[in-house]
Design a protein around this nucleic acid. Structure first.
Lengths: 239, 239
DNA sequence: GAGTGGTCTAGACCACTAC
DNA sequence: TAGTGGTCTAGACCACTCC
């Protein structure tokens, strides 16, 4: 337990809320009372509550108090952090397999140059993988990595988790991603690999991922049959 | 100017970053230096920087410093706050018109009961609107509001902005939303109203909106032709 | 070892809500 | 008027990175 106090407090409070030790729609004890109970300063309590507010578990209103919401609970743990762990960690590596459809090095097309903010002479890996969950075809991923930033990719790595390689072996950290979600129809490749029919709707997620250094590392397009997966977002209104 | 100091500081720093007074990829002055420059405590500086980090403008690394990223800039201001202002405010009320396709009161179906967490006897408005931007059909919205929470809806309100009515007249505040984005094909209604063809892909956004009190207020399904609009997400990796 | 950001405290004042 | 959460300070110690 070397977590900072405010995170430990947040965990405790989260547990109490989920176990309804604090009833939904009721007011939490005020921050001074909580500070005394836990033997910490009020600011530390506030910081813990700030985190819970961002998760949508509580709502704080000056002059009134802190209300227990308990809504985000029902919509299935949608921790934003998991978004950067890749499919393998999300579903569990035991269930995911990858079939490599293409593994090339090329110079980037103008579109890829623009997305990765690189010049035409900066080579990229051009990868196409079919991701299977429990043997069922699920997603086609078309990914471009800068060779300079993700060197020495191998078939072996591609068959497992690229993200694990980037995090654990290259020690690179994801800073964020920009995603565009759209609807399209099946292409011949979708039909061949995903088992779709002609004219079936397909959900497409286009994304640019960058590191904490601000450098773009990946541009990818993921496609799956609409009946297999949708994209969910939990949006908490700050202000 | 009655904004808190840390927000004013954040605004100043944001401006400096966007004007490249702090060059991208360079290190910001350290927090103690900034605290002296602005004549505030270090914690206030940190709070300002925390905000900028959440926007994806900078990245702070303990033991190193604070790097200027300047990436989110290019992807077009995607302020999450705007998500709760509705289409009218997003595009500008001068450009938006609404054609009311349906305006009823009914008892909720089992599905709507589940989404709004209400009983079968709690009446809801059943609204279908075609939203037009600059005269062009854009989105079909199928919306359910609890009558108890959004009383006295009129045709006049529906033709303008429901969200403005909820915020300004009812003084209710949105707490958050849960959205599911999926891909489907055109229905007959889409073809009739959006001008789509049969078998064309449609982007569908299903959402449940709740208030700061935790009560669900709205369940809605929005549909638009995939060629007209996609859904974008900016995702910053916390940790 | 020097410098960075992260955490934490004790105490203070403020704006807001409610009665 | 009393109580709430929001802000802010000055000062302290820590873990971490880099030289």
């Amino acid at each position: 337990m070397s977590l900072p106090k405010y995170q430990q407090l947040a965990a405790t409070m989260r547990k109490r809320i989920k176990e309804h030790a604090y009833a939904p729609k009721s007011l939490l004890p005020d921050q001074n009372t909580l500070a005394k109970e836990f033997g910490v300063s009020r600011l530390t309590i506030k910081k813990a509550l700030d985190g819970l507010a961002q998760e949508g578990l509580i709502y704080k209103q000056s002059g009134v108090g802190t209300v227990v919401l308990g809504i985000a609970l029902e919509n299935g743990e949608d921790s934003p952090a998991e978004r950067f762990d890749g499919l393998t960690k999300l579903v569990g590596s035991a269930h995911v397999r990858s079939k490599i459809l293409k593994f090339d090095i090329t110079f980037p097309s103008p579109k890829v140059q623009k997305q990765l903010v690189i010049g035409p002479d900066d080579p990229v890996y051009d990868i196409r993988r079919l991701r299977l969950i429990d043997g069922e075809p699920w997603i086609i991923e078309h990914t471009y990595f800068r060779v300079k930033m993700v060197p020495n990719l191998t078939h072996k790595i591609l068959e497992h988790s690229i993200y694990a390689y980037i995090n654990n072996d290259l020690h690179l950290k994801f800073g964020g991603a920009y995603r565009r979600i759209g609807a399209t129809l099946t292409t011949q490749e979708d039909i061949d690999n995903l088992g779709g029919k002609a004219g079936e709707p397909v959900l497409q997620v286009e994304q640019v991922v960058w590191l904490t250094t601000g450098q773009n590392i990946e541009y990818s397009i993921s496609r799956n049959l609409a009946r297999n997966r949708s994209y969910t977002v939990l949006d908490i209104n700050q202000n």
